[in-house]
Design a protein around this nucleic acid. Structure first.
Length: 563
RNA sequence: UGGGGCGUAGCCAAGCGGUAAGGCAUCGGGUUUUGAUCCCGUGUAUCGCAGGUUCGAAUCCUGCCGCCCCAGCCA
């Protein structure tokens, strides 16, 4: 009813900050660690950070949070840039790295030492864990906690100079070993790592930890609102503590929101890695993957992804959103934009016994039923055509209004045909249908307004193009595989099925990467990678809604319940 | 058993002391040469539970319950 759409809590805060004059420009950042590919959860964060800035004429940084060399790589950096860009966002000259600030960060650490707020600890990792205490017991101070400023400074400089091996020392913030918030029990802020860095090369052998680097990087970039997910909520006191000690001229504010989980898929980096490493999928861009690269290759349109995360909303409540919600967004945008074509996925031959052997007619087919401006194309029609195996039933239920023995059906944009004879092989399988066509029912002519209950799609046999079509289904059999201990146990063995399909000739001209609707079947994308001149490959993006399939399923369920 | 969050319909989500928006899904019906689209219609929501304050509570207070996160020299 109201004409002002309600704002989510983050946009409200931002509006308040603008109105109160706290800020006159909004600056945000999207800060992925380049240690993996971006996925559907990141789409949410990207759209939020870039969106909120755009709406307020602000700016957004794409910052690669590369403070942990060894896990990070250029491959991931490139993929991240490609994916964010594909989603339609532009960071201009604001592409940065946490590693761009290593020198400033080092100076800030030195400053912390001088303030008596940080010390070099020489305990081992195991000992530090011991000293930290537990969730219910306070920790104990390290014996090195009271080292003097001079000694700390000297040790830290020598850490940087490479005088020590990995793990020999660590720089820690001096906060409170008995804090109920574990993050405040003297967290490590610098560790020694003699390993090359994807951006900084061999320049450093000490690297800052996330908590130290992140808030300061935000401050350096004049970020006003640092938006992150809920698991960082109890890091906020630490985020603020560093800012309190170091008092940078610009002070960012961290705000947390809940991450977006999609049912029947995983977004945990570890599980995604398993899928790729073990070859369960073909790679990070396998069309079944919830990665941006995967969804792009699957053929999901950008507009659909953006609409989806907008509908999901920004809140602090844990979400597990139905796959159907995403698929529906995909259908909505493709339904408007995709041109229609015909393809037969599981072919069954129909011979029109009363159609001349050598005759070929060109049928006019609309490219979009609701958009005449998209024009028409010609579909060759001849004596032998392929129809969908599922569009014929020898013993059909009453409500099945497709082809059955003695029954009539319209071949879309062509003639009404009647099934006269069913040909089977030795095993009893139906291999061919003998039908007759009614010459007076050609679309747009004669008494073609004669009604039959069903209309099915078809492809002329002698003109058909062969193609491999991949039919995708969800990767997992349970709604929340993210929380499964072993993903192997919940994998859907039928997540990929490949069929040999017959395409109408016009599909031969479809460029790779292009998307069409195969009438009555779904939306399909001409695969960019596996396609070749000799073998054409299409990926099924999503099926059409299918109320017949739903009825069938319901009937099946009622039957099994009755048993 | 410590700390930090979160609980409004199957899934999301508005609501900010005045009597429960909206979307998706579902279920009816209409149109249709895609069983698609489109169009109409459709919800008995103990607002997690129990008390309290108030003329009036999803909104304020108290207690309880449930779920998520935290003990990396990961982010």
């Amino acid at each position: 009813m109201s004409d002002t759409p309600s704002r989510d809590f983050i946009r409200q805060i931002i509006q308040d900050d603008l109105e109160s004059g706290k800020h006159d420009e909004i600056v945000t950042r999207f800060p992925p660690e380049p240690n993996g590919y971006l996925h559907i959860g990141h789409v949410m964060s990207i759209c939020l950070n870039f969106g909120v800035a755009e709406e307020n004429n602000g700016r957004t940084f794409l910052r690669l949070d590369d403070t942990n060399p060894g896990k990070e790589s250029k491959e991931y950096v490139d993929a991240i840039k490609r994916d964010v860009h594909w989603l339609g966002f532009d960071w201009g000259d604001r592409l940065t790295h946490a590693s761009d600030y290593f020198e400033q960060l080092y100076e800030s650490a030195l400053r912390l030492i001088e303030l008596g707020c940080a010390y070099v600890d020489s305990l081992s990792a195991d000992e530090i864990r011991d000293y930290r205490g537990t969730l219910t017991e306070a920790g104990r101070n390290s014996p090195y906690r009271d080292r003097g400023v001079e000694e700390n400074r000297d040790l830290f400089r020598r850490m940087r100079a490479g005088e020590f091996g990995d793990g020999e020392h660590v720089l820690r913030a001096k906060i409170d070993m008995s804090s109920p918030n574990m993050n405040l029990r003297d967290p490590a802020i610098y560790r020694i790592r003699h390993i090359p860095h994807q951006n900084a090369g061999d320049e450093w052998c000490i690297y800052p930890m996330y908590d130290f680097a992140h808030g300061l990087s935000d401050a350096y970039e004049h970020i006003t609102h640092s938006l992150c997910t809920l698991e960082f909520e109890d890091h906020r006191p630490l985020y603020d503590w560093f800012l309190d000690q170091l008092e940078p001229p610009h002070r960012p504010r961290q705000i947390e929101f809940s991450r977006l989980n999609l049912a029947f898929t995983v977004t945990s980096k570890r599980k995604l890695n398993t899928l790729v490493d073990e070859g369960i999928v073909s790679g990070w861009d396998d069309p079944r993957m919830p990665t941006i690269a995967g969804m792009r290759r699957r053929g999901y349109p950008v507009a659909a992804l953006r609409e989806f995360v907008t509908r999901a909303g920004v809140t602090k409540k844990d979400k597990l959103i139905e796959m159907g919600a995403l698929e529906n967004c995909v259908r909505e945008t493709l339904g408007d934009t995709a041109e229609r074509r015909m393809a037969v996925l599981k072919p069954l031959k129909v011979v029109l016994t009363n159609y001349p052997d050598d005759k070929v007619e060109m049928m006019q087919a609309m490219n979009h039923p609701a958009k005449p401006e998209l024009g028409t194309r010609e579909m060759p029609f001849s004596r032998e055509v392929w129809i969908e195996r599922d569009d014929f039933m020898e013993e059909a239920p009453r409500k099945f209004f497709r082809l059955k023995p003695g029954g009539e059906v319209r071949l879309r944009f062509a003639y009404i045909i009647r099934c006269d004879e069913v040909i089977k092989d030795e095993s009893g399988e139906v291999v061919e249908l003998r039908c007759s066509y009614d010459p007076d029912t050609r679309s747009g002519t004669g008494s073609s307004d004669r009604k039959v209950k069903g209309t099915i799609h078809w492809v002329s046999c002698q003109h058909a193009i062969d193609a491999g079509v991949r039919l995708y289904d969800r990767l997992f059999t349970v709604a929340n595989p993210n929380s499964a201990d072993d993903i192997h146990a919940v994998l859907n063995p039928e997540s990929l099925q490949t069929v040999d399909a017959k395409l109408e000739p016009a599909l031969g001209a479809l460029a790779a990467g292009q998307t069409v609707q195969f009438e009555r079947l779904g939306y399909f994308c001409h695969d960019e990678l596996d396609d070749s001149p000799t073998s054409r490959v299409f990926n099924r993006i999503v099926t059409l809604r299918d109320s017949w399939a739903r009825l069938e399923k319901q009937a099946m369920q009622q039957q099994t319940q009755a048993l």
